[in-house]
């Protein structure tokens, strides 16, 4: 904004670089003023929206986090960092944080091997690949709410999932396990695993599609050359294809980590944090504290912590991964 407000001063610095010829100064000034006006008009709507509805609320979250505030009264009870110390010593928040980390690690551990394997297989000559790709992507297109409601019904006792697993239950029973049928969403020891599997069901198609797109960008001559040299299919995948797919895998992992940290919809719909608060994520905990208990100050502190963790993940990604993957990209430097 400041740039567009001071066209005259800024203009003095601008065009010199690529218009060294000395034209008449007033004409040039009019031209640069016009240019700044154009830039301002083009950028203003997006920038205003972005400032008012993204940057200002984020800044306000940071500000509110320093107050004890119910969202209605005047902001007077300044309490410094108390909300933060409260969150970081609160068992419920720490459990939510641990749950998020469980989803971060679990999503990658479950989805990466399966998605990579399927993508490598689908990258081979295969009849019906287009249709398969379409089908495998279907869960990703559904909303988390619909996926959550679907699975809540299927995970009911004696629902589809129990039916599909009944041979396993039978086997466990003959092996002497007392009640092998888990309460998928009502047992505090099971519920996180259930959510992890539903999340993986919903998002694995995204990983597969992404990996397939990455595989298509790999020069087939490399694999052909290796095949001529006598490498087996698996050797080629392990030594050539998977390493070349590295950047795609890493960016998928980053997207997955951020998604796991922000997880809200599915948990809200399937368990609402229960049973007994055991499946809260930072986001569901924040909404509960902020809206249901009217603790806007404390909820904001939780939001800031959530942001800080995502930010660290992004920094780690940029520092250690992007730098090595994108040495040749000129978009970023331009």
């Amino acid at each position: 904004m400041t740039m567009t407000e001071t066209p005259g001063r800024a203009a003095a610095f601008v065009d010199g670089s690529h218009e060294p010829s000395t034209k008449a100064a007033p004409a040039r000034r009019a031209q640069t003023a016009r240019k700044w006006l154009e830039i301002g008009v083009f950028v203003a709507p997006a920038l205003l929206l972005f400032i008012i509805f993204v940057l200002v609320p984020v800044a306000r979250a940071g500000y509110y986090s320093l107050y004890n505030w119910n969202g209605i009264e005047e902001l007077t009870k300044f309490i410094g960092l108390d909300n933060y110390t409260r969150a970081l010593t609160d068992d419920d928040f720490l459990r939510a944080l641990r749950n998020n980390l469980f989803f971060v690690v679990g999503s990658i551990a479950v989805q990466l091997p399966i998605a990579l394997g399927v993508a490598l297989l689908m990258n081979r000559r295969m009849r019906g690949r287009g249709a398969f790709r379409l089908l495998i992507f279907v869960p990703y297109v559904l909303s988390e709410v619909i996926a959550g409601v679907m699975f809540t019904l299927m995970l009911q006792p004696h629902g589809l999932v129990d039916w599909a697993l009944s041979p396993v239950y039978g086997l466990l029973q003959t092996l002497g396990v007392d009640s092998p049928r888990p309460l998928w969403l009502a047992d505090t020891d099971v519920v996180l695993w259930t959510l992890l599997l539903v999340i993986s069901w919903k998002y694995i198609g995204f990983a597969i599609i992404l990996f397939l797109a990455g595989l298509q960008g790999i020069n087939p001559e490399l694999e052909e050359a290796a095949a001529i040299d006598g490498a087996s299919w698996w050797q080629i995948q392990r030594r050539i294809t998977i390493p070349l797919l590295g950047p795609t895998i890493r960016i998928w992992a980053f997207v997955s980590v951020i998604g796991s940290l922000q997880l809200f919809d599915m948990v809200k719909v399937m368990t609402n944090g229960g049973p007994a608060g055991s499946s809260h994520t930072m986001a569901t905990y924040m909404i509960q504290q902020g809206f249901e208990r009217s603790q806007f100050g404390y909820g904001s502190a939780v939001a800031v912590i959530l942001f800080a963790i995502s930010f660290v993940a992004a920094l780690v990604y940029i520092r250690f991964v992007l730098r090595s993957d994108n040495t040749s990209s000129d978009d970023r430097e331009a």
């Binding site: 830039i39 609320p57 904001s300 939001a303 930010f311």
Partner: peptide
Amino acid sequence: FRGREALYLVFVLGLLFPIGVAILP
């Protein structure tokens, strides 16, 4: 124009703010 990359960076940084972080304010 001067400040173009800075302006672009402001938008890029927005990627780090998911709607959930700002939802209360």
